[in-house]
Computed example of a mutant assay.
Amino acid sequence: MPDSEARLAGWRARVEASLDAALPRPEASPARLHAAMRHGVQGGGKRIRPLLVYATGTALGADEPTLDAAAAAVELVHCYSLIHDDLPAMDDDVLRRGQPTVHVAFDEATAILAGDALQALAFELLAGAALPAERRVAMLAELAHAAGAAGMCGGQALDMQASGQQLELAALEILHARKTGALLRAAVRLGALAAGADAGTRAALDRYADALGLAFQIRDDLLDVEGDPAVLGKTAGKDAAQAKATFPGLLGRDASRARLATLAVQMQEALQALPGEHGALAALARQVVERDR
């Protein structure tokens, strides 16, 4: 849908401007830390999470300015997680978004501090969102839960623990529902909370977001096997090199693609239960399923 694509492009520009305004100026002290923070955030990326905030919130009647803080906050948490995931103690990666990872471009200690500072900045932004206090508190709780031991951090711990092991499908899905899915689901929920969505609408959005998170990870796993590093902007084949549990490794490529197609249908069905116009959410679902990076 051309109109949806134009809206997504406008929201990408909007979140880039919000991120630039929120990040410390590079010339301010400590300049090295601020430069590392900007390196980890401004190197590009799909910006799927902030786009989900805008697409969900506006579909439910929220104004774009009331969504800016949540969109930037969820992307800052995502960027902090990438900086820490790339560290030698974690995935030990040297390339991210087509450029050296933060610990390579700067140093390991600065990368750790940059990630910490981005996470803190995310919650500072969200606390100051132009929304009623009760909605801000609910959004802060949602993002904190998604980022913590019950969500993204817990998923990363399970991923590291599973290295070299062959997981059952249910265990692999739980791992990625935390590591990848939790923050994507939080992005959708932040948009819904900002708009004051009712319980039925939030339930349909959760079904959409859960399918989206799993689809995102399956596509990511397939790209690690099949993708071109020049297009991906990151190292391909690292999952196999690190003996990580993946969907293609467990199911095979054909079955993984079939599961991806099933999830695409589930997302479409969930969106049909929503009120109003949701073309941008449908466009994001297609992007996740069809992306090449």
Rank of each mutant, 00 (worst) to 15 (best):
M1A: 15
P2L: 12
E5F: 09
R12V: 09
A13T: 13
A13P: 12
R14Q: 15
L19G: 14
L19Q: 10
D20S: 11
A22D: 12
R25K: 13
R25E: 10
P26E: 03
P26S: 06
E27V: 04
A28R: 11
P30K: 05
P30S: 07
A31Y: 08
A31E: 10
L33K: 10
A35S: 12
A36T: 01
R38L: 11
G40A: 07
Q42C: 08
G45T: 02
G45M: 07
A55K: 00
G57Y: 01
A59Q: 07
D63Q: 11
E64K: 05
T66A: 15
D68E: 07
D68N: 07
A70P: 03
A72V: 04
A72Q: 06
E75R: 15
Y80A: 10
L82V: 02
P88Y: 14
P88C: 13
A89G: 15
D93H: 07
V94Y: 05
L95R: 15
L95K: 12
L95Y: 04
Q99P: 11
T101P: 10
V104M: 09
V104S: 12
A111N: 04
D116I: 11
Q119M: 09
F123L: 08
E124T: 12
A127L: 06
A129E: 02
A130F: 02
P132I: 01
A133W: 00
R136A: 00
V137H: 00
V137Y: 00
A138M: 01
A138H: 00
A144P: 06
A144T: 03
A144L: 09
A150P: 02
C153N: 04
C153E: 05
G154I: 13
G155E: 01
Q156F: 08
L158Q: 08
Q161E: 05
S163R: 14
Q165S: 10
L167G: 13
L167Q: 14
E173S: 10
E173Q: 13
A177M: 14
R178T: 03
L183T: 05
L184V: 11
R185I: 09
D198Y: 07
A199M: 10
R202S: 02
A203T: 04
A204H: 09
A204I: 03
A209E: 01
G213M: 03
A215N: 05
D220G: 13
D221M: 14
V225A: 15
G227C: 13
P229W: 00
A230V: 09
A230W: 08
V231N: 10
L232T: 01
K238A: 15
K238W: 05
D239Y: 14
A240R: 15
A240P: 11
Q242L: 13
Q242M: 13
A243E: 05
T246D: 13
T246N: 12
P248H: 06
G249A: 07
L250M: 15
A255M: 07
A258S: 06
Q266M: 06
Q266H: 04
M267I: 01
A270C: 05
Q272H: 06
A273D: 10
E277G: 11
H278G: 14
G279P: 00
A280H: 03
L281C: 09
L284W: 00
A285S: 13
V288Y: 02
V288F: 07
V289Y: 10
E290H: 09
R291G: 14
D292F: 04
R293T: 08
